[in-house]
Every structure is written in structure tokens, then in C-alpha cells.
Design a protein around this nucleic acid. Structure first.
Lengths: 156, 156
DNA sequence: GGCACTCTTGCAAGCTGTTCGCAATAACAA
DNA sequence: TTGTTATTGCGAACAGCTTGCAAGAGTGCC
């Protein structure tokens, strides 16, 4: 399925919900497809869209992403302390490990969490929904760099 | 060890680092001790301090908490999307489950993460450092309330 | 195509949580 | 007591996000 077809399919769902297929929305979906591998932020999406459609405002991107999320087409993830990033919902069978030092994101499969989830559900009556969040820590590279001693400045 | 003694001990560490023991700092530490069970935010700390010391500014609280964190005396935790909360470092042998729906915080012991941490370290060369973060999900109460069907509005 | 209906948009203002620059002040050492 | 330097309050600024509103653009229907 090529990009144009995917865009049409998604806009069909938007329209089925009473929404409209506008140029800005087409461009936003195009960007989401083109950059699906980089966890784009709203800012990233906006500036990319603005290359071809300079008039598109950031608030439009926020609003449309909210709507896409309501429709179950995208999901947001908070990686560390920066801005929220967005995913297609179908891409979210993984979770994110974010290095507090270098910011690098490692993806791990969902099943890694299975036994923890079961245990927490059983013992604490709490259903973990990890998709929108992140595990912080340190990747090996950073751990080797200044490992002996204190872990220094972890950021807020 | 009573509060005054604890405050003096902590200020001694501040001074050993070249810092000074001021009235504002004493009041902040007092508040931290008095409210250690409620995960206070900067705003919470500031308004509490201001009851006795109305002139103390929020920025002072931010700055001193940063310093206490550098010294390893407190740690911050981000619970969900709201403001950061602070802990004494000695109190942080637990993690937080935050309900996306009602915001209720459940504490779980650190050891729950042990096998996940080991596995991630082995397979992904990533050392999880969960203290500053949180697992999102839904507590039983909320799950029962509107469980059949979609999980509705998870918040950003 | 043209029309009416209403959703969407750009813009600017506003909000929350946090940081920063700075001159005045207060803590400490000697 | 005094000199040195850390700290403070204040206000402005910041990032990320949300909102109100009037103008504009899709859509269904004829």
C-alpha cells in the first residue's frame, strides 16, 4: 500500500467520524508516514509540513494529532522530558528505553513486560499501560564512558 | 533523629559543598520533612514555606532542590504529566504506578523490577533507572468503572 | 456549478511548569 | 567587623501545549 492510498484510507476514517479531508491534514499524514521511523514531535511535523505549506500552524498539527489519537490511528509517547512524540498505532507493539545521558532511544518488544505486568496486576490490582511512557536509564555506551563513581547530573 | 537535627545534618552537607545555611533553606527542608509522605511539588513546597516566610520565591525552591539533588539528598520523580515531585533519596526504594484516569499513585517495591532489569541489561545492554519515572496504567477502581469498551481519553 | 451548513484553520493570546539575569542582601571566614 | 562570595527575590523569559475567534474551506444537496 503506497502512501497516497494509506492517506486516503486514514482520511476516510476521519470523514466517517464527521471530519474533513483538508490539505493540511493530507500533509500531516504524509509527514507522519515519511518520518514514521524517527518518532516525530509536533515541532518536527510542523516544520516539515511547512516546507511545502508554510501557512500551516502548529496548533493545527496539535489538533489533528489529537483527533487521530481519538480515532486510534496514532498514539503519543513521552520520551524523557522533552516534547511528546507520535507513532502510528499499528507501530506500537514495542516500548522505549531512553538513555538519560545521551537521549538515545532503544526499542524493546512488548513481551519483555509480560511477567512484570502480570505480577503487578495480581499483587497491586493495577494494569500497566506502558505504551505512552518510557523506561529511563543508561545505555552501555554512556555507562562505559564515565562509569566509575557517581552517575552525575541526571536531568529533570 | 528529630527534624531540627536532620535539617542541621543536611545543611552540614550543603556547607561542605560550599553552600550556605539560610532561613529559606531551613524552611524548605522543614517542609520536605513534614510532607515527605505526600510527594510534594515545588508549588506545594513554596506555598507551605510562604505561610511562615511569605517572601520566599518559587525560584529559590527550584534552585535549592536542584542543589539537594546534586548532593544526593533528594530525588525528583515525574508522576504522569503534571509537575515534578520530590523525595528524600533515602525514601526512594520504591517505584510509582500512576493511574491515567484518576491520578492515584500506588507505590511498589523496587524488587518487582528486578527480573525485568536483569533481562533488559543482558539483552539490550541498558541499565534501567526507574526512580525518576513512573509506570502508567489503570487502577482497579477505574478499570471497573468504565471497563467495557474503549479506554476513552487517556490524557497527554 | 452553486449554495448552505458546519468543520477547520491561522493567528494571537494564554497557560503551566520551569529557568535565568541581575542587583540587593545575607552568610560565612578571618 | 569586614571583605568575599553565595544566595535571594523579582520579573522576564522560556518550552510545550491549549484555546477563542473570525475568516476560510470541505461537503452534501440541488
Amino acid at each position: 500500500m503506497d502512501a497516497a492510498t494509506r492517506i486516503d484510507a486514514m482520511l476516510a476514517r476521519v470523514r466517517a467520524d464527521g471530519g474533513r479531508a483538508t490539505t493540511a491534514r493530507r500533509a500531516i499524514l504524509q509527514t507522519l508516514i515519511d518520518h514514521h521511523d524517527v518518532h516525530p514531535t509536533v515541532e518536527h511535523i510542523t516544520t516539515t509540513v511547512q516546507a511545502n505549506h508554510p501557512e500551516v500552524a502548529e496548533s493545527t498539527v496539535y489538533r489533528f494529532l489529537d483527533e487521530l489519537e481519538r480515532l486510534g490511528i496514532v498514539e503519543h509517547v513521552r520520551l524523557g522530558h522533552g516534547p511528546t512524540v507520535y507513532h502510528f498505532a499499528e507501530d506500537t507493539n514495542h516500548h522505549h528505553l531512553v538513555c538519560s545521558t545521551c537521549g538515545r532511544v532503544t526499542e524493546v518488544p512488548q513481551r519483555i513486560f509480560d511477567s512484570l505486568s502480570k505480577r503487578v496486576l495480581r499483587d497491586y490490582a493495577f494494569e500497566i499501560e506502558a505504551r505512552h511512557f518510557t523506561l529511563a536509564g543508561r545505555c552501555q555506551t554512556c555507562d562505559e564512558q564515565d562509569s566509575p563513581g557517581v552517575h552525575g547530573h541526571s536531568h529533570r
